[in-house]
Design a protein around this nucleic acid. Structure first.
Lengths: 151, 151
DNA sequence: CTAAGATAGTTTCACTTGAAACTAATTGCA
DNA sequence: TGCAATTAGTTTCAAGTGAAACTATCTTAG
């Protein structure tokens, strides 16, 4: 007795998550690119360095959910653009110590409010109750699906 | 007086959506790949053809939120694998008329329950109330963000 | 101490992807 | 009619991506 709900892509959760997320990410990425010549991956690296000074590349990868290859490449571009400075860690010469440069901070301080504004615009479609549920639901799914991912 | 909430990537909605969605999609993609040598894009094409017989490539693109290049390539592989058949539309020789082959249907009928099972597993982390809110919230955001996208 | 294994980060290679250019067919309008 | 603009779908090209191999450094077990 296996009567199935028909598989209707529009109502299939993974599909909806994927399309919604890609649409949102795309809009943000375009804005960063146009206004700051910055990719999403570069921005994510800058965002965590703005928040946690002096991380190593591995720590950046853990905090951005990016793999180390992507981080390495994003850092190469950011350092080339003198938005990030890299030192070698005293205690371990394999590790780098990363921080935003003065120039990087200027970019960061312009983008951070724009990013938050974008988030507000997205959340503006929801009322207070819905926002609370969304936050709780994402927490739960995040925990359940990603417990192994972030460290 | 612009005192900002700090930009903490872990609490930033677009970032959370993106990481969660990529993690879920990745897990599903791996399964399709391993068990059926099928990419996510190919599966999406098969899914809409299983539901709506005889679509053109353009209609498939609209229903999967994929661009026409991606659809064209997915179709080339599916036709090569004889999972999809393509005819030329009578009324317009530019258009194709696409349908799953018998072989395609067999694959479809194996995957569809697996996909739904995967969705159930994901939703198992939420209680009934949370599921209802999630569905309503995704509908709202979908409507708001994608009104231009899907026709 | 030192050799074997582990770790941080980079490079290479093969593959995927999207934008733009392209071909073929159709439509609209003078 | 007949030619310019539009549309369906494909191909090309440049850029982005991850897996695996690689280099340099550090840790550990004997």
């Amino acid at each position: 007795m296996s009567e199935h709900r028909p598989l209707d892509l529009e109502h299939f959760l993974p599909y909806r998550l994927s399309v919604l997320s890609n649409t949102v990410s795309r809009a943000i990425a375009d804005m960063y690119q146009r206004r700051f010549a910055l990719s999403i991956t570069e921005w994510r690296v800058m965002a965590v360095l703005g928040r946690y000074d002096g991380l190593s590349a591995r720590e950046v990868a853990a905090r951005t959910a990016m793999d180390k290859v992507a981080v390495s490449r994003a850092l190469a571009r950011l350092i080339e653009a003198t938005r990030v400075e890299r030192l070698v860690a005293d205690h371990d010469k394999r590790q780098s110590v990363l921080r935003l440069s003065a120039k990087g901070w200027k970019v960061y301080e312009q983008i951070a409010p724009l990013a938050l504004e974008h988030e507000r615009r997205l959340l503006a479609h929801l009322d207070g109750e819905e926002r609370e549920w969304l936050s709780r639901i994402l927490d739960k799914l995040w925990q359940a699906e990603l417990k192994e991912l972030v460290r």
